[in-house]
């Protein structure tokens, strides 16, 4: 059964230095509050996995939490670059990071295979692309039935999955609504999981085919209202697109970035 913890306690107990951590949310339900707690607790040498690193990993990379990044699209959507990620890759600031990059289709399949307990995923992908030349986790195999050449990618099996969701009931069952992205797969693929939720309610009011993670499939739940902001939680608040645009200016410069982090992350405690 999932254990209800404070966010501080959940991060402290279940994320260790050196862990492979996947914090997911495909534009929607990005676990920002949890990411900020990881930064405050100064976790180090993490291998960070995420399809779309987004601002949350830009912040964690800029704060020195990461030694490696596995991803498939590393930008500020509709705005431009993730400047902290670029500074790490182009200038090794604040430290050098290793990268392993995929396409979205391959990463989605790799999570799916992880959730299914398989060592690799198969897809019709990477045809003609240079990505297999720079990523040794991409191979090509022959279909045993048709002889067609297909791509194989190693499955994603993180130490810890972290996601945000709309709500949990008092037994720790979690409802995810809207753009569900890869939320279910990442939790099932990981050894441990932390789910932050907007609120804890008596009744989930889930439809019969709703995306629900049962309590017994989750390690820890922490209540974190507005825990996805400036991303969003459908039914609670909208994506703060103005902030996503502002971030471009904040992150471009190391000092502005550090000042923002001090004021908005380090000097603010976990809820």
């Amino acid at each position: 059964m999932a254990e209800f913890l404070s966010l501080r306690e959940a991060v402290s107990r279940y994320i260790n230095d050196g862990d492979t951590v996947a914090m997911e949310g495909f534009t929607h339900l990005i676990p920002f509050a949890a990411g900020h707690e990881v930064i405050r607790q100064k976790k180090r040498d993490l291998t960070l996995i995420r399809m779309t690193p987004d601002l949350v990993y830009d912040q964690m990379i800029g704060a020195g939490c990461a030694k490696k990044l596995i991803f498939s699209w590393g930008g500020n959507p509709g705005v431009g670059s993730l400047h902290r990620l670029r500074d790490a890759l182009e200038n090794e600031w604040p430290n050098s990071i290793e990268i392993l990059e995929h396409s979205h289709a391959a990463m989605a399949c790799a999570y799916d295979a992880g959730a299914a307990g398989l060592p690799f995923a198969v897809l019709r992908g990477y045809i003609g692309s240079d990505l297999p030349k720079v990523n040794d986790q991409i191979k090509f195999i022959e279909c045993p039935f048709t002889g067609e050449q297909l791509a194989a990618v190693r499955s994603v099996r993180p130490d810890v999955a972290v996601i945000h969701a709309q709500r949990a009931d008092r037994n720790g069952n979690v409802l995810i609504e809207g753009i569900i992205g890869i939320q279910k797969e990442v939790v099932l693929a990981a050894k441990r999981s932390i789910v932050t939720v907007e609120e804890v309610v008596d009744d989930l009011s889930a439809g019969v085919n709703a995306c629900v993670l049962p309590s017994w499939a989750i390690t820890a739940i922490a209540e974190a209202p507005k825990g996805a902001s400036p991303s969003y939680a459908l039914g609670y608040y909208e994506r703060d697109n103005a902030f996503y645009k502002e971030w471009d200016g904040i992150a471009r410069d190391r000092e502005t970035f550090q000042a923002w982090m001090k004021a908005n992350v380090f000097e603010k405690g976990a809820e």
Binding site: G74, L123, G125
Partner: peptide, 18 residues
């Protein structure tokens, strides 16, 4: 040692072939 690092592939590699 990239001069300019861009976002990466995203959905495009498989959209373009499928």
């Amino acid at each position: 040692a990239p001069k300019v690092r861009l976002p990466g592939g995203g959905g495009a590699p498989e959209i373009a072939t499928n």
